[in-house]
Amino acid sequence: MELAAADAGGLRIDWARMPTYNTVMALCAGAGLLLVVALGRLLLTDRAVVPDAWAMGFGALGVILFATGLHMTLTWPLAGQGFAFDNVVFGEPALGFGVLLLFAAFFLWRRGEVLGAAGGARGRTVAALAAPVSVLVFGLGLACFGIAAAGWRYTLFAAPPEEPISGEFADHPMLEASFISALYVLTGVGAVLFPVVLWRRGGPAAWVAGACWALAGLAFLLFGALNYFTHIGLIVNTL
């Protein structure tokens, strides 16, 4: 398996064969999780919702995640120098999340007025509408557990020494592998609890799911933003 060409100057990567845009994917996935938590809080606390605003928010993120996730999923392997697992680890979850966000945006744009009902009526409406798609959310949660297990088992996600900041921990590959895997676990816990949240229309499961998605969303958002520096540095250092 060819990872890169190494010479006296250190690691060299043929970036023409290594498309890398999990930066924007992580950023948008994090923002999407945070928006889902925020909307869920509004619904559970019976606060007003402006459907058009949420449709724009979900739609913007959904377009990016759908486009990048679809390309990464269907282009096999996207990274032709030893990172074929990226298609599964990043591409497929982004595609699934992007589709969910796009359909949520379309519904909020076309039928968002149904969320105007007060009290228990709105909760029952949301639960009934989201029940079928909760099967996919549950399945994606299980997939996140599988990705996390693979990250720990095969020490994925470790950065090379040439990558700024993250590369400082290259001698401890389990550190970054554990960090990213933990984010997938948090995301997975929130996803598998989603059907329970709908069934109970709130309760402790909603708080646990919301906390998991909020923590994972914030971490993905910040880590994706940080990677704009670290990935640019890696590209410069390995040309």
Rank of each mutant, 00 (worst) to 15 (best):
E2P: 15
E2T: 15
E2Q: 09
D7T: 03
L11I: 12
L11M: 12
R12A: 14
I13Y: 11
R17L: 15
Y21S: 11
N22H: 11
T23I: 13
T23M: 10
L27S: 09
L27P: 15
G30I: 14
L33H: 03
L34Y: 06
V37S: 05
T45P: 06
T45G: 09
R47V: 06
R47A: 14
A48M: 07
V49T: 06
V50D: 09
P51F: 08
D52G: 10
A53M: 11
F58W: 08
A60L: 14
A60S: 12
A60N: 09
L61I: 15
G62T: 11
L65R: 10
M72T: 15
T73Q: 07
L74G: 02
T75G: 12
P77F: 11
L78W: 02
G80M: 05
A84G: 07
A84M: 02
E92G: 01
E92D: 01
E92I: 09
A94S: 15
G98E: 11
L102C: 13
L102G: 12
L102R: 07
F103S: 15
A104H: 08
A105D: 05
A105L: 08
F106V: 10
R110A: 13
R111H: 13
V114K: 06
G116I: 03
A117N: 00
T125K: 10
A127D: 12
L129H: 02
P132G: 03
V133T: 15
L136A: 14
G139E: 01
G141K: 06
A143N: 08
F145A: 02
G146M: 00
A149G: 00
R153G: 04
F157S: 03
A158N: 14
A159K: 00
E163M: 07
I165G: 07
S166Q: 11
S166H: 11
F169R: 12
L175E: 14
S178I: 10
F179K: 04
I180T: 04
I180F: 14
Y184L: 13
T187Y: 01
V189E: 05
V189K: 03
G190E: 02
L193I: 01
L193E: 08
L193S: 03
P195M: 11
P195D: 01
W199I: 09
R200H: 15
R201E: 12
P204L: 09
V208C: 11
A211T: 15
C212V: 00
C212P: 00
C212G: 05
A214D: 04
L215D: 05
L221D: 12
L222G: 04
G224Y: 07
N227K: 14
T230Y: 01
G233C: 00
G233T: 00
G233I: 01
I235K: 03
I235P: 00
V236N: 14
T238V: 11
